[in-house]
Nucleic acid binder design. Structure first.
Length: 443
RNA sequence: CGGGGCAUAGCGCAGCCUGGUAGCGCAUCUGGUUUGGGACCAGAGGGUCGCAAGUUCGAAUCUUGCUGCCCCGACCA
């Protein structure tokens, strides 16, 4: 992409409403624009990152055996009356009346709708297990939206729903999502820690929040630092095998949010291993048994010919919130530092002097990299060098290539690693090779 | 939902107390000089002062109502 033809409205000054660093940087880097309290337009650069996060989530969901579909944002109130949640959900639910005076709502979540879809088609235990998910905009009319997309009213969420014959197989479905989540966040370069969460009226121990450590996090967390070094399940993990050993490894070291915190158990961890910090919740998995299947009649016939309600679980990832969490975890004074896997572009190519011999060198490098699948943002604008450097650092692409008459005198271009600040002078060929290799290994 | 605050050019702000020609910095446009880490000089364009009503000869400024937004606290992907 040529910057001269792109839409990247970078702000030099920080908008006053932005309190936390991720919100500030998203606004400054031209990724986001607020349209209303807690409601945002995703500008081109922000949208690219959002789609990259979404793709990773999809790949890992698919790998774990979940099947993607897409449900609407607007739902009929009737379904929610069936589950009893239309009255129970309260003011967080945005209620809408259509021209025929029908009660509609902007979905805050989709348990009712997915249960309706399931019960309309599935009759036999032979069709289980089943896990259906979608990635769709949700709306929750928060009392106080804040921190940009960290707590917006409209947000993009992945929500998966599992259907199983009994609690035992539902636990396996749960474990699959647990492993998928470990992999998903790891692929974005995030350390997400599963923590036991409140299960509400259902009880049991099958609910975990996945929390990323960040000083701006909304909740206080306590953990045994051993959990930070646990290995992430590999890409070739067999999701049909017994995953419980992995779950055991990850749930044994102490890790809890403040509402589940147990001082005594935490003390037993030992002073040298205790970590108390703040965290951002980016995922939440939940087993809720027959809470929806029973009232809504989602039943299958089992091997004995008896109709039984299915056991369900739901599994959420805050896709838009992840973008904020990623920036909270990856930035410095100059701006964002994207991990390769979610970077809006892999490389920023800076033409130091348009109209000079740098043009030709840039063009050929640009074409070569793009042809090799490297996503390049080519700054071909005729502006001052300082503005280009500052802008490139701000938007945080993993690598910058600086091409100008000075380096070309010796036939070289400069390659800068945004994260480490490391720079090296290379021939254009060597630079291209290095960048192509870096993109292949890191994304 | 309780408490606090803000609304004036695209962005950041001053002006309001004490009513009288709407201003500053950045950004934008034009010309020139510059050009490897957010340049300089000169000039130009851009405003129903959030909306509505009231007081007044006269309202950005005073009064009332409304709307929007932000911050702190209790609640949530």
């Amino acid at each position: 992409m040529r910057l001269s033809r792109y839409f990247l409205p970078i702000l030099k000054e920080t908008p006053k409403e932005a309190e936390i660093v991720s919100h500030r940087l998203m606004l400054r880097a031209g990724m986001l624009r607020q349209q209303s309290a807690g409601i945002y337009a995703w500008l081109p650069l922000g949208y690219r990152v959002l789609m990259k996060i979404q793709r990773i989530v999809e790949e890992e969901q698919n790998r774990a055996g979940a099947v993607e579909l897409l449900m609407p944002t607007i739902q009929s109130a009737d379904l929610w009356r069936e589950s009893g949640r239309y009255e129970a959900y309260g003011k967080e639910m945005l209620r809408i009346t259509d021209r025929h005076e029908r009660d509609m709502l902007f979905g805050p979540t989709n348990e009712e709708m997915i249960t309706d879809i399931f019960r309309s088609y599935v009759r036999s235990y032979k069709d289980l297990p089943l896990n259906l998910y979608h990635i769709q905009w949700k709306f929750r009319d928060e009392v106080r939206p804040r921190f940009g997309v960290m707590r917006g009213r409209e947000f993009l969420m992945k929500d998966a729903y599992s259907f199983d014959l009994d609690q035992e197989s539902a636990r396996h479905a749960y474990n699959r999502m647990f492993v998928a989540y470990l992999r998903t966040f790891d692929r974005m370069g995030l350390k997400a820690i599963p923590m036991k969460a409140d299960t509400g009226p259902i009880g049991g121990d099958l609910s975990h929040e996945f929390i990323i450590l960040a000083s701006t996090g909304e909740s206080e967390v306590f953990l045994n630092k051993d959990i930070l070094d646990l290995p992430i399940p590999a890409e070739d993990t067999d999701f049909d095998s017994d995953l419980s050993p992995i779950i055991t490894d990850w749930t044994t070291p102490y890790a809890a949010t403040d509402e589940m915190h147990d001082e005594e158990a935490f003390a037993a961890v030992g002073d040298d291993k205790q970590v108390s910090a703040r965290g951002i919740e980016v995922g939440h998995i939940f087993y809720f048994g027959t809470k929806y299947s029973e009232p809504m009649g989602a039943k299958v016939t089992n091997s004995e010919g008896v109709e039984v309600p299915v056991h369900m679980g739901s599994y959420g990832v805050g896709v838009s919130r992840l973008m904020a969490a990623l920036i909270e975890a990856n930035h410095d004074d100059d701006g964002i530092i994207w991990p390769m896997s979610v970077a809006p572009f892999h490389v920023g190519l800076i033409n130091m002097k348009p109209g000079s011999e740098a043009d030709e060198a840039c063009e050929s490098l640009y074409k070569q990299l793009e042809a090799a699948g490297v996503e390049v943002l080519y700054d071909d604008r005729d502006t001052r060098a300082g503005a280009k450097f500052a802008g490139m650092d701000l938007i945080g692409l993993p690598y910058q290539v600086i091409v100008g008459p000075r380096g070309l005198k010796t036939g070289e271009v400069e390659v800068k690693n945004r994260a480490t600040g490391e720079r090296e002078m290379l021939s254009p060929e060597a630079a291209a090779e290095k960048l192509i290799a870096a993109v292949r290994t890191q994304s």
